[in-house]
């Protein structure tokens, strides 16, 4: 398959843990976010992907 990855997750599957560097506008600071920490906090997670900063959204 061209363009996107061939073996993405499907609904009902468990998402493997991931970690990303973050900017938190609320605290005006940098940090990290991990799925493991969100799960430990009992949170639902909503991921909202978009192509690029400084563009029309």
């Amino acid at each position: 398959m061209e363009g996107t990855d061939c073996c993405a997750l499907q609904l009902g599957q468990t998402v493997p843990d991931f970690t990303m560097e973050t900017f938190d506008p609320g605290k005006f600071g940098f940090g990290t976010v991990s799925l493991e920490a969100l799960k430990k906090a009992g949170k639902w997670t909503v991921l909202f992907f978009y192509p690029a900063d400084f563009t029309f959204v």
């Binding site: 997750l9 468990t14 998402v15 843990d17 799925l35 639902w44 997670t45 909503v46 991921l47």
Partner: peptide
């Protein structure tokens, strides 16, 4: 522009 909802157990 992908949007994903994951429950507290980590299931998509």
């Amino acid at each position: 522009r992908g949007t994903f909802v994951i429950n507290p157990e980590g299931v998509l």
